[in-house]
Amino acid sequence: MVKKMMIASCIVFCISCNPDVSLSESEMIKVSESFHIALEQAMPDKDLDTILKLYEEDAIYLPMSGTILKGKENIAKGYERTLQNNLASFEMVREALSGDVNHILEIGIINAVFRRDTLEMKGSFKYQNTYRRQTDGSYLMHRAIYNINQN
């Protein structure tokens, strides 16, 4: 019995020691999709609470204007500025995923349509997101940066 426990403990130990436990592509896609679904709905709806729930407490957000925003309070201020724009649509198109069980790195393109009165303007942006695994097994946004994409 003791021997079995020691073997089991050693297995747990070995898994714990390796921070690079791989994550299948389908699992990474599943995580990424959950963020896409939430943001694609929340951004046009100007739903700041939902957006902030996607971020870690000490997350880092690098929006288009201004400097680095650290922590949810500052990130909220950044999004308040972004959400002053009227977004008719917001679509995230994933280009690449990598990482391990603890961190998922994603790059992709955001296609957005801004509405001002009756005028609609299209914008294309690149993004790089890092999702970090939490102690409960869920993932939250750890880092996010956006910049202009050339159409």
């Binding site: 880092i60 690098l62 288009m64 400097t67 680095i68 990598s98 790195l105 790059i107 690149k126 790089q128 890092t130 880092r143 940066i145 956006y146 910049n147 202009i148």
Partner: peptide, 22 residues
Amino acid sequence: KYVNVWRKEKDGYKLVIDTYNV
């Protein structure tokens, strides 16, 4: 401002993702 991700390879740390905005 920028976000970089570095990975340890045989010959040291290499930049794997480099994104910046002005």
